[in-house]
Computed example of a mutant assay.
Amino acid sequence: MNQTRPKPQRGVQSLETGGAILRELARAGQPVKLRDLAEAVGVVPSQLHPYLVSLRTIRMVEQTETGLYALGPFALELGLVRLRAQDAWRETMRRLPALADEVQLMVAVSVWGLHGPVIVFVHDSPTRIHANVRVGGMFTVTGTATGRLFAAFMPRATVQPLVAQELPDPDRQAAYWAEVARVAEAGFETTLDLPIPGVSAVAAPVFDHTGAMQLAVTVIGPTPQIDLSPEGPTVRATRAFTAQLSADLGHLAGAL
């Protein structure tokens, strides 16, 4: 049976050009010259000017006293509406099946609770693993990738009591916080055969528009099936997933 391909929908070219203008203004992050904006959009300044007139009329674009162009107040209003409508949990649940399908491993979602990282969702993998990862369970702060990830991006005063409880020795605490600093710089964390031999994991954070860490996404599986190198497929897939989700929640990379 032949399947009819859907016909490409016809759009409005002028609206797409207007969107390209707004995208370049957002990318610039500061007021820009007409000439530079035209070059970024790919049109000559004389063609760009009428679009800017219309965008100024609806307050999507504003012009400074020095003649530079920037996003206007209505663009800010739309952005705030978008941010308020976003929910890290809802968006994670909606997108998680795609990540699980790509990595073919267990994926756990954790949030910070009263006593540390709490597992709030688990997507089982096709391959059975011997790891006690279940909804309502806890990750230790010092012995897991997820725990060290939260320590890297949560306020230290919030995490320190749990660290002191798990590592009473001050020297071990100092070594732990040095390791956490490395995690913060890398932006993700991995564990090899820990805390369960034969099981490894990679964890990456999801941030909101304020820069606060909302949750952790942890991919877990048999050690032979996880390449923990930074450019390995599991790490790349996990980081790409959380980076895109954070960006869609309004987080600006490098804002921390």
Rank of each mutant, 00 (worst) to 15 (best):
P117Y: 00
I220T: 02
D171T: 04
P195C: 04
A174F: 12
V219P: 14
P195V: 05
W89C: 02
P224N: 09
D193R: 04
S46Y: 13
A240W: 05
A201E: 09
V199M: 00
L76G: 05
V199Q: 00
Q160H: 05
L167D: 04
F121E: 11
G221P: 11
R35F: 08
A174Q: 13
L52T: 09
D208V: 15
A85H: 10
I220D: 03
V183D: 09
Q3H: 09
L25H: 04
R23G: 09
M60N: 12
S110C: 15
E91H: 00
T146C: 15
T66V: 06
N132C: 07
I21T: 07
I58H: 08
V180T: 00
G79W: 03
D87P: 11
T17I: 15
W112D: 00
E77F: 06
A203Y: 08
I58M: 11
A151S: 05
R172K: 06
T158P: 01
T66G: 01
T191W: 00
I119N: 10
A255V: 06
V12I: 11
L68V: 00
L194S: 07
V180E: 01
R236A: 15
A70C: 03
V219F: 11
R5Q: 13
V109W: 07
E189N: 09
L252N: 09
A174D: 15
S14K: 09
W89Y: 08
E39L: 02
Q63M: 13
I21P: 00
G79N: 08
L252I: 14
V32Y: 09
V202F: 12
W112A: 01
H115I: 06
P230W: 01
V163K: 05
Q160N: 06
D193P: 10
G11C: 10
I21L: 09
V122T: 04
A212H: 10
S54Y: 13
L78S: 02
P126D: 10
